[in-house]
Simulated scan of single mutants.
Amino acid sequence: MFKNIPCTLMRGGTSKGPYFQAHDLPSEPAERDRILLAAMGSPHIRQVDGIGGGDTLSSKAVIVSPSTQTGIDIEYLFAQVSVDQSSVDTMPNCGNMLAGVGPFAIENGLVKAQHPVTTLRILNRNTGKIVESIVQTPGGKVTYDGDTRIDGVPGTGAPIVLNFLDAAGAKTGKLFPTGQRIDRVGDIDVTCIDFASPLVFVAAESLGRTGHETRQELDADSDLKARLETIRLEIALRAGMGDVRQSVLPKIALVASPAHGGTITSRYFTPWTCHSAFAVTGALCLAAASSIEATMPSRYARRSADDPDLIRIEHPAGGLDIRMGLDPRSSPDAPHFAVAGLVRTARPLFIGVVHVPLDKAKAAA
């Protein structure tokens, strides 16, 4: 016997997972998490008994609800569901899955569509920050068809513009959580920055790598991953985040000079495996760090004189464009960004109910 829970499986950017309305799930976090684990088929390396994809990029869930706050249309909570462990982490954020939040809210009647686009103000409950989402809604209906292509996803789709508002210090309350633009761990210089999410940047060459390796090469490099984890744990302590051995934050990434006309090359870790493309929140961090003097990424960034606000990140699947603009009122000592935006695509994969075994549903009731 099963408990049937309404959901929409969606691709958001380069990730995918189920989107739920909050009223269809338990409000108590532990009960909610048991339902999510059962729905995804965790813990199991293939998630064969659930709708998870057996990979961190396809074992994600989004919970959407109306907002009672003035000036906010909807709220969403992101959940990273472990593939092979019985854990659900709502500490991180996912900008890719965020791309599907606007269309999902409109399609489910939580927000009334306008013509030709609908602009939503979304509160990210993971960080307490607000994101503006602009969804294509010609004739008052969501369209997923379009000519926008994003690397890491086949085909094209309708553009969804995401503008991150006041994203600095999303988790730690500080743009530079350690109080430094450069920290030294052993003989390695790194930068830790919190913009939409905290991330640690390390020069690939300082670890004897090029930064242009494939995802498969990096995942097989156990020595590199061990050294990255040592750096991540140390910087987390300096940033006041405590012992993060069981937490995915802060993430960590390698940086290098671009090779294909972009601004900078990077390899992003999630944090124990290399991302097949690049996380949106990670890309925002890297774009911010590349735009600020005296950071590790700024040493390798090649910003365009014609369009200095455009940061193109070269990653294993191609590239990702972020538009960053320093507020002219900010100073080099206290940088503040007036613009932090990018374009994604999204689409529903199925709409229906997920069958959760009744014994697990009762345990969560």
Rank of each mutant, 00 (worst) to 15 (best):
P316S: 04
H115N: 15
D327G: 12
F269H: 05
I106V: 04
L358I: 08
H315T: 06
G109I: 07
G128P: 12
A294W: 07
D223Q: 15
S86T: 09
F337V: 12
A259S: 15
E293N: 15
P332Q: 11
L162M: 13
A279E: 03
D189E: 15
T137M: 09
Q114W: 05
I5N: 05
V83K: 13
M91L: 13
A259C: 15
T14E: 01
T68L: 06
I264H: 00
V200I: 14
K16H: 02
A39F: 11
S247C: 05
I51A: 13
E229Y: 06
G100T: 10
R312V: 00
Q246D: 14
K171Q: 15
G54E: 07
I134F: 08
M324E: 02
T137Q: 11
T265W: 02
A340F: 01
A288N: 03
T263E: 00
E314I: 00
Q114M: 07
D49T: 10
A158T: 03
N126A: 07
D187F: 04
Q216G: 13
R232P: 02
T265H: 04
N108R: 03
G352N: 14
G95K: 07
I322S: 04
T230K: 14
T281L: 01
Y76C: 05
I231T: 04
M1F: 10
V62I: 15
K129A: 02
G157N: 04
G262N: 01
D321K: 00
A256V: 03
T56K: 09
Q47D: 10
R32P: 10
A170C: 04
S58R: 11
M241K: 03
I5V: 15
E107M: 11
A113M: 08
D55E: 14
A61I: 08
K362D: 01
L36Y: 00
V280L: 04
G52R: 10
D306H: 13
R323T: 14
T148P: 01
T214L: 12
F176L: 13
G242T: 04
G13C: 06
S65Y: 11
A317K: 05
T127D: 01
R149M: 02
N93C: 00
V354L: 15
A30I: 10
D183V: 08
D194V: 06
G186A: 14
R181P: 00
H115W: 05
T90F: 00
P92L: 14
K171C: 14
I351Y: 09
R11Y: 07
I45E: 09
L110Y: 07
L249P: 02
N96K: 05
S266N: 09
L98F: 13
A346L: 08
L37V: 13
V161A: 12
S206I: 00
S331D: 07
R232Y: 03
S197F: 03
R312M: 02
D219G: 02
N126G: 07
